[in-house]
Write a protein that binds this DNA or RNA. Sequence first.
DNA 1: CAAGCTCATTAGCTAGGCTAATTAACGTGA
DNA 2: TCACGTTAATTAGCCTAGCTAATGAGCTTG
Lengths: 143, 143
Amino acid sequence: MAERTSAEQLAVGLREAITRLNRRVRQERPVGDLTFSQLSALTSLQLAGALTPRELADVERVQPPTMTKIVGKLEERGLVARTPHPTDRRQVILAATEQGRVVYAQFEKARNEWLAKQLAELTPDERDTLERAAQILQQVARA
Amino acid sequence: MAERTSAEQLAVGLREAITRLNRRVRQERPVGDLTFSQLSALTSLQLAGALTPRELADVERVQPPTMTKIVGKLEERGLVARTPHPTDRRQVILAATEQGRVVYAQFEKARNEWLAKQLAELTPDERDTLERAAQILQQVARA
DNA sequence: CAAGCTCATTAGCTAGGCTAATTAACGTGA
DNA sequence: TCACGTTAATTAGCCTAGCTAATGAGCTTG
C-alpha cells in the first residue's frame, strides 16, 4: 500500500515536472521553418537510420495518412528521401538526406542550448541525480 | 565516472528521456473528447484560479486569437465560464466551472495511471532517485 | 490464380496555430 | 473635455496536423 501511494504521488510530481520542462524546452524554438512534428519525425528517422512510412507512423504514434503529409513536407525541403523497398514494391524506404542530417543537428543544438545552460548551474551532485534519473526514465518510456 | 558527464551531454540524454516519456504519457488518452490543448488550458486555469484570455495565452505560450478558439470550445462544453472584469470592461475573467473541475480531475487521473503503474515496478531506490530528480527539474523549469 | 490482406496514398473533415484587421474601452495630455 | 494613442478581445483568413474512409497497387495463400 505504501509503495502504491508513493508511486502515484511520484507520478503526479514527475509528470508535472516533465510537462513543464518540455513546454519550456519546446518554446526555445530556433529560427527556421520546421514544425515540431516535422522535427520529431526527422529525429526518429535519424535515430532509426531508415524506416517505412508505416514504421515511422508507429514510432511517432500517428496514423499513416498523417505521416504521409509530414514526410511530404520534409521531402519538399529536401530533408528526407523516399527510395523503393528492395523486395516489396508496395513499401517505401524513408531516410534523412545529408541536408536533413545537417538541419537536424542545427535544430537539436539550439534546443539543447537552453537546457544545457540551466544544467550547468546545478551542483555536480544534482547533475548526477539527473543522470541516473534520465536512464531510468528512458527505461520507463520504452515499456 | 558518470559524474564527469558534461552539462551538454546530460542535456541531450535528459531531453531525449523527457520527450519520449512525454509522448508515451500523452498517448494514454482517456476516452473523451478533450484535446491536449484544451486540457492544458483547463489545467492552467485550474492552477491559477482565474485568468484573463491574455494571461492564459501567455501561460500557454500561444497568441490571443488561438486562446479565443480554445476557450470557445471549453465554454461550449460548459467547462469554463467567462465573466466580466470588475473594473475594466475590455477584459474578461475566465475560470473553470464546477463541471470543468470534475472533468479535469478525471483526465488527470487517467493520465497519471499509466505512469504510476510503471513507477510501481521500479525499485524503491530508483523511485527515490526520480523523486529527487523531479524536484530538481521543477526548479529548472521555473527558471 | 482468385480472394483477401497489407501498404501507401488521396479525399475530406476538425482542431489548433499564426498574422492582420476590427471593435470596444481605457487613459492621458493639451 | 475630448481627441488621440494604447490595450483587450475577437473576427477573418490562412496553413499545419491530426483523424477516418476510400482507393489502388502489390503481396500471399488456399
